[in-house]
Design a protein around this nucleic acid. Structure first.
Length: 488
RNA sequence: GGCCCGUUCGUCUAGUGGUUAGGACGCCAGGUUUUCAUCCUGGUAACAGGAGUUCGAUUCUCCUACGGGCUACCA
């Protein structure tokens, strides 16, 4: 790469960060870092109506928590600023004027009514709805008169006629369009703001962006941008149109079919490393490799544009959960506890009994149970409380045990456990002792273990007897068993 | 309707002019812990269709089908 690599992520501040946006940002970041280049954050707020207050700050925060550490942007500064488009209006106006002078753009005074009518009739005749270029041939005098009278107007791009516009896309190769199918779309709106098409081209050029990495939904407007570069006489950066992220039904990923915001997943307790890992693999994969787990550093080292997939990728929650599980299992004790605490604080049982020692004892079992951090309550509540004593659980079909027998089992268990010293409340020792007793009684394991487990938790599903005994310790275990005995 | 893009197991993907088309998630079965979760073992499952090039195409070319995206003074 002879020129310095400069990529940008250019969201509009209209709300939360979409996972598709995160992937675009991630790829821009990975590519820039891989080539020792720069990544820029640029805020595209040219649509005043869709602005959401605080969205820019929020965007910056989320990127930062995801460790996507861009080099230039509204909050970081840089030599190519300002990085917020609403602060660059004079720049766009200047370049729009230049296009007018070059006859590459023209003033348009058409009213909304006229345009609506025109489109309506085009639809009726089943022709492509496009601007009819009415003002493109407006006599100069009329145009000047209208301008002098301050008639509301826009500036439209004068798309060349009868031309093939082609460009190279890093993912798709050579792409070409017939210029006659391209609309003379608006470059400058009546409110003095540019549209995306003008702003993006001007800014990418001025900010010396080398690779335009964005979603595939932009591919149809890329030829217009290419034409604009040509009108200005500028070099065209490399286009990189990423395949779309998809719903399970293969439409463009959207709400209604699940969460799409990064902050939703963060809040649910998906780890950021897991999110990055999962998102990165949606549309990119290392050559000749089966690897599934990648750190951010590893991604930077291995990422390349030519391994980007052409087809869209379904956002598959199950695989996402699996990756998240993987990362949770690898978390060291201290970190796991730290991450889990905020989710635990919502739980009744924790508010009543915030026993950190007990929590620590559950960690091994907890790692096997968590899909997301927010599952923590469900996963360990039986260690903290006896939630219910549903006696209907005891006469269980499979176990062929009825209530009197269950009671007897608890008594037998108690006998053994009372004699076991506190320090022998480990998985191995409790198992040894209880199984030996089962053999002595000539029972089946389940006849003793099942009632003990339910007695200690009051639940149909819970951790195993030996785990419970180990985590709870002698005192608490015996207390619970005796309690159960009274209840039944 | 028009324009553009795409198509390997259900999903994410690896791969090659000659392969038993590989892995992961999921699912199913078995094992461990007589619950659940974890863990281990095994299994299920794909080159959209047609034509051409070729001794041979999943791989190269074309066509068709299907899917998707775009089609605003939104981005």
């Amino acid at each position: 790469m002879d020129k310095q690599v400069r990529t940008r992520f250019a969201p509009s501040p209209t709300g939360f960060l979409h996972v598709g946006g995160l992937r675009t940002a991630l790829y821009a970041y990975l590519f820039a870092r891989h080539h020792n280049g720069k990544m820029i954050l640029r805020i595209e707020d040219t649509d005043q109506e869709r602005l959401v207050e605080g969205a820019t700050t929020h965007l910056q925060e989320v990127l930062s928590t995801m460790n996507i550490d861009y080099d230039e942007g509204p909050d970081k500064g840089g030599e190519y600023g300002p990085y917020i488009q609403s602060e660059r209006l004079e720049i766009y106006q200047k370049y729009a004027k230049e296009l007018i002078e070059k006859d590459e753009a023209y003033y348009c005074f058409c009213t909304k009514d006229r345009l609506d009518e025109m489109r309506e009739s085009q639809k009726k005749r089943k022709v492509a709805p496009m601007y009819d270029k009415h003002c493109r041939t407006l006599p100069k005098e009329d145009c000047e008169k209208a301008l002098a009278a301050s008639t509301p107007h826009v500036i439209r791009q004068a798309i060349p006629t009868d031309k093939t516009i082609s460009f190279k896309d890093a993912v798709r190769g050579h792409v070409e369009f017939d210029s006659n199918t391209l609309d003379d779309h608006v470059l400058m709106k009546a409110d003095g703001f540019p549209t995306y098409h003008l702003a993006v081209v001007v800014d990418d050029h001025l900010m010396e962006i080398s690779h335009i990495i964005r979603g595939e939904e932009w591919l149809p407007s890329a030829p217009k941008h290419a034409a604009l570069y040509e009108s200005f006489g500028w070099d065209i950066p490399e286009f990189v149109h990423l395949p779309l992220l998809l719903n399970p039904d293969r439409t463009k990923l959207s709400k209604r079919q699940g969460d799409v915001n990064v902050e939703d997943y963060l809040a649910k307790g998906y780890l950021k490393d897991a999110i990055i890992n999962f998102i990165a693999l949606l549309g990119w994969h290392e050559e000749k490799s089966d690897q599934e787990i990648y750190s951010l550093q590893e991604l930077i080292q291995k990422f390349s544009l030519d391994r980007v997939q052409k087809a869209g990728a379904v956002f598959d929650l199950q695989k996402f959960e699996w990756i998240n599980c993987h990362y949770i299992k690898q978390l060291p004790d201290e970190e796991l506890i730290e991450k889990i605490l905020p989710h635990l604080e919502k739980e009744d049982f924790w508010q009543k009994n915030p026993d950190k020692t007990l929590l620590k004892n559950t960690l091994t079992d907890l790692r096997a149970r968590l899909k997301t951090l927010s599952d923590v309550g469900e996963a360990i509540k039986s260690y903290f409380q006896v939630t219910s004593h549903d006696t209907s659980i005891y006469p269980h079909e499979k176990m062929k045990i009825d209530l009197p027998l269950a009671k007897k089992a608890i008594e037998e268990g108690l006998k053994v456990l009372e004699e076991l010293p506190e320090e022998d409340f480990t998985e191995e020792k409790t198992k040894e002792a209880l199984i030996a007793h089962v053999q002595k009684l000539e029972w089946k394991n389940g006849h003793l273990l099942w009632p003990l487990r339910v007695a200690m938790t009051g639940e149909k599903y819970s951790p195993g007897v030996f785990e419970l005994l180990t985590v709870l310790g002698k005192e608490e275990s015996l207390k619970r068993l005796k309690q159960a005995l009274e209840l039944f």
